[in-house]
């Protein structure tokens, strides 16, 4: 067999994947970039406008409001989510039957679809007949307008999201914890390490990579938060809880301004990419130092 055939042989194996990857991801991405330079409508109308869409976006206060909302949501979701997942995993990392049951319970929320999650949280949060409102009423207090007070909608969205997304990070951390050999803990016990020392000096450094993975994955995911916001608050009141993806959806499929929406999507893509790269850089830099 000559060199050239052997060189192409490898492509046969990755071919199907490469094809799907290119067709389903790379091609739409490039198509999107193309559309973002046009004024486009769903019926095929295309008018080249260059960077006009981007310029409009950067001058659009509604876009900036959505960016700020998205960052607020991400910051309110990712750190508590990571810490909760870690705490739960630490508590449930044992071989008892009750721990297994609780692992199942905490994971179960992740298998629900966003529609059901929203229904559940609407049932809890609505001011007129929600669970919290009823409890407050029984205590003789006024209901809290979680879904209509502009100061409360983002925290409410964050809480519902944390509840929904907790399962997978918890399982990842659990898997990380189970990789730590038990005799390392025994050595630490003989070295006189107390609970906190063991947690800080043994456990956390051992699952460092898992925690980094959880933070990076969740950051990238939460920057693209959409379903909960649309169903729970519809971005309201007056855009106070509208994240970027919801804005893109409204622009593209509400106002049918495909070019403008595509430009917003490209900006979001660059934002996610930039945040991820910064995180990656911060992590690898510290690793090189250590």
């Amino acid at each position: 067999m000559n060199r050239t055939t052997r060189r192409y042989e490898g492509f046969l194996f990755v071919g199907p994947f490469l094809f799907l990857y290119a067709f389903l991801l790379i091609y739409p991405l490039i198509l999107g970039i193309g559309i973002s330079f046009h004024r486009a409508d769903p019926f095929g109308g295309r008018l080249w406008v260059g960077l006009d869409n981007y310029a409009r976006l950067l001058a659009d206060p509604i876009f900036w409001q959505a960016v700020v909302n998205t960052f607020k949501l991400t910051l309110m979701i990712v750190p508590p989510l990571t810490i909760l997942a870690l705490a739960l995993a630490l508590a449930l990392n044992r071989a008892t039957r009750s721990a297994a049951i609780f692992r199942g319970i905490f994971f179960s929320s992740s298998v629900l679809s966003v529609t059901i999650v929203t229904l559940i949280w609407r049932f809890i949060l609505t001011p007129d007949a929600g669970l919290i409102a009823k409890i407050l009423h029984a205590m003789g207090r006024d209901p809290i307008p979680f879904l209509s007070d502009p100061h409360l909608t983002i925290p409410a969205l964050a809480i519902a999201t944390i509840w929904w997304c907790l399962g997978l990070p918890m399982m990842l951390v659990l898997a990380g914890l189970q990789q730590i050999p038990p005799d390392v803990y025994e050595a630490a016990a003989l070295d006189g390490a107390g609970r906190w020392t063991t947690l800080w000096r043994i456990t956390l450094p051992s699952i460092r990579r898992t925690l980094i993975l959880v933070v990076m994955m969740q950051t990238a995911a939460q920057l693209q938060i959409f379903g909960q916001a649309q169903l729970l608050t519809a971005g309201g009141p007056s855009g106070a809880s509208r994240p970027i993806v919801l804005l893109i959806y409204e622009i593209a499929f509400g106002r049918w301004e495909l070019g403008y929406g595509a430009a917003a999507a490209e900006l979001l893509f660059m934002l996610v990419l930039a945040v991820t790269l910064v995180q990656y850089w911060a992590v690898t830099r510290r690793e090189a130092e250590a």
């Binding site: 025994e186 016990a189 003989l190 006189g192 390490a193």
Partner: peptide, 17 residues
């Protein structure tokens, strides 16, 4: 507790951190 017994142990699989 193990740390206060005045003993030190060498593990079969080393158990280094």
């Amino acid at each position: 507790p193990p740390g206060e017994r005045g003993v030190a142990m060498v593990f079969q699989h080393y158990a280094l951190y």
